[in-house]
């Protein structure tokens, strides 16, 4: 029977225990297991049990030209999507930071893409992008432009996917920036106005530096997410045409669930893990340098 004394004596162990178990089971174990699998030659098409082979799976992955193309594409997609989201998101936040009629409704509408299911978004956008019967080309033709093969033209597919990401995630940057703006003190603005600064100077020299920590937090969150984008790409192009939209996560998915080379898939995911980790480290350092 648990009496009060027992509980008191072991409280420092008992209370954090659920959190520790949770962390071990859901964070430490999967990562450790992935590392272990990446060091084996586990391949379901052989019908043999996994065997330890050291770094051979890593070697196989880095020798695959598809891995490097996917690597570059991951960076390209992330850079394109997050840069555009940041600029647009900050502009949105500045607009929403003013008072105007219907602000509440606009804010709510802005939130809608954030709460939609990614796969449903992918399917809707696939219809939207459909070259013959889709709305996107109908719009282009209505203003006298030629329709595009949005998801099947190798040169267009990644920007088209980034546009979906932009539509869904710009509101997140806007909301985080807005929270940052709300917390700013008004004094610097007053003195700036007294000194005769114009609107642009105020934004560039006062608002932006002060709100930068919030924006950077948004950029960090979005980048980590964009680097491992899966659902939108999988539900629209499956990485096609001819792998032209295959990012690292899609590549790893193909290795595991299409080719059943689990060792190599784990190795490729460890690379993605390292990429995300190093990116976070860079941004954290940047934030510290900015003194925030």
């Amino acid at each position: 029977m648990l009496d009060g004394k027992l509980l008191d004596r072991h409280a420092r162990i008992l209370f954090p225990l659920p959190a520790v178990v949770f962390t071990l089971a859901l964070l430490v174990f999967p990562v450790a297991y992935t590392v272990w699998v990446s060091l084996t030659n586990w391949n379901l098409t052989t019908g043999l049990p996994p065997r330890f082979v050291g770094l051979k799976s890593y070697a196989a992955v880095v020798q695959d030209p598809r891995f490097w193309s996917a690597f570059v594409r991951t960076l390209y997609f992330t850079g394109m999507a997050v840069a555009a989201e940041t600029v647009l998101g900050v502009i949105w936040a500045l607009v929403l930071n003013r008072n105007f009629a219907g602000k509440g409704i606009v804010k709510t509408l802005l939130l809608l893409p954030l709460v939609a299911t990614p796969v449903a978004i992918g399917i809707s956008w696939t219809l939207f992008y459909e070259p013959t019967i889709g709305l996107a080309n109908w719009g282009l033709r209505a203003i006298g432009l030629q329709g595009l093969n949005w998801l099947t033209d190798r040169g267009v597919v990644l920007p088209a996917l980034a546009l979906i990401d932009l539509w869904q995630w710009t509101p997140l940057i806007a909301l985080i920036t807005l929270a940052g703006l709300a917390g700013l003190s008004l004094e610097p603005y007053e003195s700036a106005r007294v000194d005769g600064a114009n609107g642009w100077q105020i934004f560039w020299h006062i608002t932006l530096p002060m709100v930068a920590p919030a924006v950077l937090t948004g950029v960090l969150l979005r980048s980590i997410d964009a680097l491992k984008t899966f659902d939108i790409i999988y539900s629209t192009t499956l990485g096609g045409p001819s792998f032209a939209s295959e990012t690292l996560n899609i590549y790893s998915y193909n290795l595991s669930f299409n080719y059943f080379r689990l060792g190599q898939a784990a190795a490729s995911l460890i690379f993605l893990f390292a990429l995300v980790l190093s990116f976070s480290a860079v941004v954290s350092r940047l934030r510290r340098r900015l003194g925030v």
């Binding site: 070259p131 013959t132 093969n149 998801l151 192009t237 045409p241």
Partner: peptide, 19 residues
């Protein structure tokens, strides 16, 4: 063929034929 055929599997062919 219709535009965007390199993105089509049976589901897209079916929809276009049905339409």
């Amino acid at each position: 063929g219709p535009p965007g055929v390199t993105g089509m599997s049976w589901a897209q062919g079916l929809s276009l034929f049905q339409a």
